[in-house]
Computed example of a mutant assay.
Amino acid sequence: MTDIANIFCVGRNYALHAKELNNAVPTSPMFFSKPTHAAVVEAQGQTIELPGDQGDVHYEAEWVIHISHTYQPGMQANDLVDGMSLGIDFTLRDVQSELKKKGHPWLLAKGFLNSAVLTPFIPFPGIKACLKTDFSLEINGKEVQRGNIGQMIFDPQTLIEFCAKHYGLGAGDILFTGTPAGVGKVSDGDAFALLWGKETLGEFTAALR
């Protein structure tokens, strides 16, 4: 597993995803974070346990970037990012809905163990190269999500600058950059595959416990 310092996540960064959950499309990046304990296993064909006793668990596939060193004003994404992976931002959707009603933070719904499953990181080819390739999620052999970083509301450079300004950004930090439309409910025994273009970067089976 690549060393991880902080896990920053971007909400509602694809317009169609915001609309499918009846959320307003944001006018500035909306960040939340997960504990590092959320990302303790890599998707390498094993079974990964998720909470099965707190209502629906939803999957959200995302493009994830790894930061190589501390951000300084004017730095570009191509200079800062040294690796990329695909990840699942798992969400306890029923728990999140109740927290929203009460105006409470989302940590219970977003920060549980194994809520940030990642594929192994691969070398970052640069933003232009990434724009040429879609990422996708297959469950039980069927594609359920597909996205491209060119569809983001806020591009990687904007996310990096916003995160650095408001929270700091340094070596080992990772950014989950938002999920495209197609999120849905996890069932016990679902087989997940995360693909970069036609290349499978990671696979696992979900076990609801």
Rank of each mutant, 00 (worst) to 15 (best):
G182T: 12
L113N: 07
A181M: 05
I149Y: 03
P180F: 07
K165C: 05
I122K: 13
V183C: 09
F204D: 07
T133F: 08
D3M: 10
E42Y: 11
S33D: 02
Q76D: 11
L21Q: 09
T177K: 12
E138R: 13
R93L: 01
L108I: 01
G150V: 06
G184Y: 01
K165S: 14
G52Q: 05
Q157D: 12
H69T: 10
G52S: 09
P180R: 06
G55R: 02
A18Q: 04
G103L: 06
C130S: 14
L118F: 13
C9Y: 09
Y71D: 08
D188L: 11
G11P: 02
Q151A: 13
L118T: 04
K198C: 00
G11S: 05
S28P: 00
T200V: 14
E98T: 04
Y14R: 06
W106K: 01
P51S: 04
A5G: 00
K198V: 06
A39L: 10
S136Y: 05
G141W: 14
Q151I: 00
N148I: 12
A109Y: 07
M1V: 05
G189V: 07
E98Y: 01
D89P: 08
H69M: 03
T47Q: 13
I4Y: 12
G87A: 04
E62A: 06
S68P: 03
H104E: 15
F121Y: 15
N114L: 09
K198D: 15
V95S: 02
A77V: 15
G170S: 15
E143D: 01
G74L: 11
T205N: 01
F192C: 06
H37W: 03
I4H: 03
T91N: 02
I153C: 06
N78Y: 08
S33A: 14
D134W: 03
G184S: 02
N22M: 11
L159D: 11
T27V: 14
P180E: 13
I88D: 05
